[in-house]
Simulated assay, not measured.
Amino acid sequence: MENFNWADLINPEFYINLEIAGHKIGIYVILFIIFAETGLLVGFFLPGDSLLFLSGIYSKALMAEVVYIENDFMNVWALASLVALAGIIGNTFGYWFGAKSGNYLYQKEDSWIFKKKYLFESKAFFEKHGGRAIIFARFLPIIRTFAPIIAGIANMEIKKFMLYNILSSFIWAYSLIFAGHYLYRYLLDNHQVDLTHYIEYIIIIIVLITTVPLVMKAIKSKGNKAE
């Protein structure tokens, strides 16, 4: 923490390797970030997809902070399950907050933490895709933060919400963490390529993949308004 830089806040490796008083706490920080990004308004700027992908690469070291598991697959499975659980709890909290806050957020003034435009973008996304928006939103930065809140404001049936919530959490966590782990193992074992040497490129690629759809949607919306 001595050489802390504000840019570290959007760097997944910073959280994974974080330690206090000589003790690694990366796994706990990751679980809190997943909760915050899916359940708290302040979590939208945090790295989500890239954090999970890199967590898959470092799964053994991360799980060692909690419990030692000799089996490689069980390490990845346990990590993905913990992340999925954090995502479920986060989304549930977001839903509850949306249901309780009602239209308060629509009256709230913009601040450096809260931008009302994100709320409207998420509302439009939710109205277009319905319950499936909860699943799609998991893979879209910013929208995944506001989607459960919108579901709560819209009084989406709790049973239906929880079904999509649980399903989306496991799909998101398992797909990204398992992809990160086994792609890393495959390239290292078969091509002697160590992905840990290309972390910066991995982060850039994942950010582009997840943000390009949002950028294209924004451009399309502006084009339609101009017409």
Rank of each mutant, 00 (worst) to 15 (best):
M1S: 10
F4I: 07
N11T: 07
F14S: 04
Y15E: 04
Y15V: 04
E19H: 00
E19N: 05
G22M: 01
G22K: 08
G26Y: 07
I27N: 10
V29N: 05
I30K: 03
L31R: 05
F32Q: 03
G39Y: 01
L41E: 01
L41R: 08
G43F: 09
F45Y: 04
F45K: 02
P47Y: 08
L54R: 06
M63A: 06
E65Q: 04
V67I: 15
V67G: 01
D72E: 12
M74V: 07
S81D: 00
A86L: 03
A86C: 09
G87T: 04
I88D: 03
F93N: 12
Y95F: 06
W96A: 15
W96Y: 15
W96G: 11
K100F: 03
S101K: 12
G102F: 05
Y104P: 04
D110C: 04
S111T: 11
K117I: 14
Y118A: 05
S122T: 01
A124H: 09
F125C: 13
F126V: 15
E127Q: 15
H129R: 10
I134T: 07
I134M: 06
I134Y: 09
R144L: 05
R144F: 07
I150D: 11
G152A: 09
I153Q: 00
E157R: 13
S169P: 08
F170H: 09
I171Y: 04
W172L: 08
A173N: 05
F178T: 06
A179R: 00
A179E: 12
H181Y: 10
H181T: 11
H181D: 00
Y184G: 13
Y186Q: 07
N190S: 12
N190V: 00
N190C: 06
Y198M: 12
Y198D: 12
Y201E: 15
I204N: 05
V207T: 14
T210V: 02
T211R: 01
P213N: 07
L214K: 00
L214N: 02
K217N: 15
I219S: 10
S221Q: 15
G223L: 14
N224Y: 11
A226W: 12
E227P: 08
E227R: 15
